[in-house]
Design a protein around this nucleic acid. Sequence first.
DNA 1: GCCATTACTTACATTTTTGTATGTACCATA
DNA 2: TATGGTACATACAAAAATGTAAGTAATGGC
Lengths: 120, 120
Amino acid sequence: MANTKETSTNKQNKISIADCNVTYSVQLVGGRWKLPILMQLQKEKKRFGELKKIISNITERMLTLQLRELEKDGLVSRMVYAEVPPRVEYELTKTGKELMPVCKELHKWGAKHKMELSKK
Amino acid sequence: MANTKETSTNKQNKISIADCNVTYSVQLVGGRWKLPILMQLQKEKKRFGELKKIISNITERMLTLQLRELEKDGLVSRMVYAEVPPRVEYELTKTGKELMPVCKELHKWGAKHKMELSKK
DNA sequence: GCCATTACTTACATTTTTGTATGTACCATA
DNA sequence: TATGGTACATACAAAAATGTAAGTAATGGC
């Protein structure tokens, strides 16, 4: 996430593979906590602390990191209110919202797949 | 990929997060080379060597590892012909094929998203 | 006997991701 | 002056994913 070596084969492969829009899309939501975050923001915007409470086991560090990436990638917007103690709200962007129907399809596929696996 | 420590927080989180079918699905195709492989098998089955040739930059090791996981997860089937030199063919399973329409949606979303980003 | 071909395997190194623990700024209130 | 709440940041450690380099088995053809 942080501190990537720009010249590594690893990094170069990651970049070149994202030429494909499917791979690109999956990379955007591939971080461990990104989908859990997006799901929580689906219905309404939420504060940092709310996300932390709802998403069990996530640490503040990971929540921050993943939110920053989602923001950089244009899936989530961040609103800071000049208050003390601070208040920061996160919300899906238009692009983020447009991803939700695709998630629904993934959900369907995953559910069906899990069921079929369990039969064996 | 190989050698995971069963008791690590990391692993435990990975597992618990897959309760959600969306996250579960994304995990199945999340490996670096899995989507490139799946895309290649979309139209027709292919031999190990063909995949290696077509997917530029993939190493034999990574191709093997990712194919093994795709097989274990029921997305790809493996057929070994008792010949020398060996011939092994890989093919999408029913489940794998059913994922393709979802990939198409992801593709659309990714393409649109990329376009919008490039405007800024 | 030697070589070529194919689909791997193995040992190891590097890079990336994730987790742990602790510290910070801000100001209102006690 | 001390305390509490919020949303972080930072240094470090562990784990996981990926990459590199070399080797293997099998057999048909030279």
